[in-house]
């Protein structure tokens, strides 16, 4: 039975580790300025935890087999209540490992969450509702117009869905869309809102995730670094259509972005 435990525990360990190393399933390609640092922190954690995982599981399997009851021929057990020196050694080691990992990652978090967006960032307001995302650009005046909950009409879509008050002068040039366009290599200043329940704005390729919470306007920033189309998924349970609350980000050149926004402005006239 000890041998069977050794075999099965080792097998589970090696098969799991094999898939972790071969990684047919892995983080999607990173296309934002922060992706490299986040991925590096992930891989570091991954390797360190992987080593602990293999060592602990292999020792468990090995001990189960090596110290099985071999009947009367076996040596007597080691009558010991423990070893204080060893307790201190592994307490300190794990303390250093875990706290060290934590401190390593904290710089990335600070860059993501403590620093405000640059003044030159593209402002985009993201609004989540059951079960769609809307994106708003402030237009040439650089100012978002007022929205009013009393005016919200999700069935009408776009401007009406987010309750844009068209009598506000600042609202005249606001552009509201269902697909997000972003210029490449420029920071984006998101304002995240939700009108009904909590949603979570998750762009896996950009290593971006932030809940959108009713009653809060949450500012976040990200810099896309590669032209292409990327999926948005909702990552917070928001009701029966949670699974289909997805959207697209189209990252384009600055030139194409300017053209696109000019065309939308023209449509409004």
């Amino acid at each position: 039975m000890g041998l069977a435990l050794l075999a099965v525990i080792w097998l589970i360990t090696f098969v799991s580790t094999y898939f972790f190393i071969w990684h047919p399933w892995w983080l999607p390609a990173g296309v934002s300025a922060s992706a490299a640092a986040i991925d590096h922190q992930f891989v570091t954690t991954y390797i360190l935890m992987g080593i602990v995982f293999v060592l602990a599981q292999c020792s468990l399997g090995l001990f189960a087999w090596q110290y099985r009851d071999r009947g009367s021929s076996a040596p007597p057990v080691d009558y010991s209540h423990g070893n204080t020196t060893m307790e201190i050694v592994w307490t300190v080691l794990t303390g250093v490992l875990f706290v060290g990992l934590n401190l390593m990652g904290s710089k990335i978090w600070a860059a993501e969450r403590f620093e405000p967006a640059q003044a030159s960032a593209v402002p985009v307001e993201v609004t989540g509702m059951q079960f769609a995302w809307y994106f708003r650009y402030p237009g040439p005046d650089g100012k978002f117009g007022i929205t009013n909950p009393k005016l919200m009409d999700p069935s009408a879509g776009s401007e009406a869905a987010i309750g844009l008050d068209t009598s506000d002068p600042a609202a005249k040039d606001d552009v509201v869309t269902g697909t997000m366009f972003l210029p490449v290599n420029r920071q984006v200043d998101f304002t995240l809102r939700a009108v009904d329940v909590i949603h979570s704005f998750f762009i896996p390729n950009m290593r971006f995730k932030q809940d959108a919470v009713p009653g809060l306007a949450i500012h976040m920033h990200v810099t896309p670094t590669q032209i292409g189309d990327y999926e948005i998924a909702c990552a917070e349970l928001c009701g029966l259509g949670h699974y289909k609350m997805h959207g697209m980000v189209k990252v384009v050149s600055q030139e194409d972005f300017d053209k696109w926004i000019a065309a939308r402005e023209a449509e409004k006239q």
Partner: peptide, 14 residues
Amino acid sequence: PFLAQPTLDIPLHD
């Protein structure tokens, strides 16, 4: 220890 790091919660949370 992955999920305890806010940085790694960005890709992994939920």
